[in-house]
């Protein structure tokens, strides 16, 4: 059928529509840039939404100081190549107190360096809309998230009091201090993301691809010692393994998987044949079930 768009192109068009609505209706939008694969797709969609013009809003990276070095290098290269306006924010108190996941625990560290830092950055710059790369298929509580997710003055999400959202008509009205988190990738699945990266040749951080890397095994999780701040515990040794990461975040909290997938076809193949979901590698979710919803209520993206 000549006038029938394939589903991936439909998703693309839907996302572009959302991104343009935000650019048109909000005073100060920002795109959260986490450097991961979803962010990479979202960035490409933003480019597409305004081409041949440039992206009319800045990108914000919340730097927890524990991101993989390769991620930071990739971020800076993308900002230079695509010439977008990159803002970087680190929680100054957290930085002063050297808040880290080893001494403070993953929950507190994430709260201070991610959740609080994000709120600070949004308030500091006065952003009234922030794009995030979250997808509804990631986790059960996300399945009910709106595309435009309203946050009160305290950045809190009230799942019982969400605005109804019909068609592609989005309600962009907020009072001062309130904001909207916008999720243009809401309807994408993990497979869609990889397919899009493949067919659109979107650059991604090489850590997604399998390579011989030095890892340690801690509490059943394979971790990379990206710098000396992560000290080896007694009995731990660095061993070379062919590994890759299914998601990217803070290196002490992000588990690797052993894999031989060194290209996108391989990744997708492993994913489709896999028996575990993608968030499995994230230490942050190890708490009790429903933890993501609790974090979101508190303002986590």
């Amino acid at each position: 059928m000549r006038y029938n768009l394939s589903y991936l192109k439909q998703l693309e068009a839907e996302s572009i529509h959302i991104i343009r609505e935000v650019a048109a209706e909000f005073e100060r939008p920002v795109m959260l840039y986490s450097i991961g694969k979803d962010s990479s797709v979202m960035l490409r969609l933003a480019e597409k939404a305004f081409a041949p013009a440039g992206i009319p809003f800045p990108l914000l990276h919340v730097d927890t100081t524990f991101k993989f070095k390769e991620m930071l290098a990739f971020r800076d290269k993308m900002a230079a190549d695509l010439n977008f306006d990159l803002l970087v924010w680190t929680n100054p108190e957290g930085l002063a107190n050297k808040v880290n996941p080893f001494d403070f625990g993953s929950a507190k560290y994430t709260q201070i360096m991610k959740t609080e830092a994000l709120k600070q950055a949004l308030e500091h710059h006065g952003f009234d809309a922030a794009f995030g790369g979250a997808r509804r298929d990631e986790e059960r509580s996300r399945a009910k998230e709106r595309v435009y997710s309203f946050r009160d003055r305290f950045h809190q999400w009230d799942p019982k009091n969400q605005r109804p959202e019909l068609w592609n008509v989005y309600n962009a009205k907020v009072n001062k201090g309130e904001s909207i988190r916008v999720f243009p990738l809401s309807n994408w699945t993990e497979l869609d993301i990889w397919l899009y990266i493949k067919f659109e040749s979107i650059p991604i951080v090489p850590l997604y691809l399998a390579k011989e890397r030095e890892v340690i095994e801690r509490d059943g999780v394979l971790l990379m010692q990206d710098d000396e701040r992560m000290e080896l515990r007694e009995g731990e040794t660095l061993t070379k393994k062919k590994i890759r990461f299914r998601t990217l975040g803070c290196y002490p909290l992000t588990g690797a998987v052993e894999s031989s997938a060194d290209d996108i076809n391989g990744i997708v193949q492993e994913m489709l044949l896999a028996t575990k979901s993608e968030r499995e590698g994230r230490v942050i979710d190890y708490d009790e079930s429903g933890s993501m919803e609790k974090k979101k209520r508190e303002g986590y993206f």
Binding site: R136, R140, A143, K144, N187, G290, E293
Partner: peptide
């Protein structure tokens, strides 16, 4: 599998639109 939110799991009922994806 589909009853996502804590509140509704406690009540054993679905209270909001949830989106699911499969192919």
């Amino acid at each position: 599998l589909t009853d996502g939110l804590i509140a509704e799991r406690e009540q054993g009922i679905t209270i909001d639109v949830a989106y699911r994806y499969f192919s």
